[in-house]
């Protein structure tokens, strides 16, 4: 309901709506982008700019959805994350292209999905669905730790700061959570 209200505000008053949207999801979007750009030449200002692009893209998508009368179930948070990932990957691509460097980063390779069979794609979707269910079943703060670690790429220290846990506690919980995930997913967890 909150997101629906937000969407309506954006469409009614884009500038005010954008402010609310950024207030609500700016942190998440920046975290997604940061996870893909950290360790590269990009600074916080670039991340901020990329976030602004993300929100602008979302607005364009929202207008298109409004035009086609298909606003119901607009996945605001999910859409923002997907756009943010793409935007960050684009930024990296542009940089590598301009710098004439051959990119071998996971960010780049992840942006170009390898061709696979329909069965494989279906199986992967099932795996993802199971993973989502398993992560959610962990409950907080473990689910949050897993999301921060594996989706936002945050270090134990960063997670500790964000969750008000100690760093060692984060590490312990991560380990336990991964074991639980393994059990839920019906496989073995092994560290790299």
């Amino acid at each position: 309901m909150k997101d629906e209200k937000l969407l309506k505000t954006i469409l009614r008053d884009p500038e005010a709506g954008m402010e609310r949207l950024v207030a609500e999801y700016g942190g998440l979007v920046c975290a997604v982008i940061r996870s893909r750009l950290s360790g590269t030449r990009f600074c916080e200002a670039d991340i901020e700019d990329c976030a602004a692009e993300t929100f602008a893209d979302l607005y364009a998508g929202l207008k298109a959805a409004e035009h086609s009368g298909d606003l119901s179930g607009f996945p605001l948070k999910g859409r923002l994350c997907v756009i943010a990932k793409r935007r960050a990957a684009d930024m990296l691509r542009r940089f590598y292209r301009e710098a004439d460097v051959v990119p071998l980063t996971p960010e780049i390779s992840a942006a170009v999905p390898a061709p696979g069979s329909v069965e494989e794609a279906f199986a992967e979707a099932e795996t993802r669905a199971a993973l989502i269910a398993a992560v959610k079943a962990l409950g907080r703060p473990d689910s949050e730790i897993i999301i921060r670690k594996f989706f936002l790429g945050q270090s134990a220290k960063e997670i500790a700061e964000a969750t008000s846990l100690s760093e060692s506690n984060v590490n312990t919980r991560t380990h336990r959570a991964l074991k639980k995930l393994k059990k839920s997913m019906g496989g073995e967890y092994y560290e790299r």
């Binding site: 942190g27 948070k77 990932k85 907080r140 989706f151 964000a162």
Partner: peptide, 25 residues
């Protein structure tokens, strides 16, 4: 796990991140 998260579509991410709140800017 990283790859699974990475390849999630918007609906899956919506589901995964429901209830998750990142730090505000």
């Amino acid at each position: 796990i990283k790859n699974a998260f990475e390849s999630m579509n918007e609906n899956e991410l919506e589901e995964l991140l429901s209830g998750f709140r990142a730090e505000s800017l």
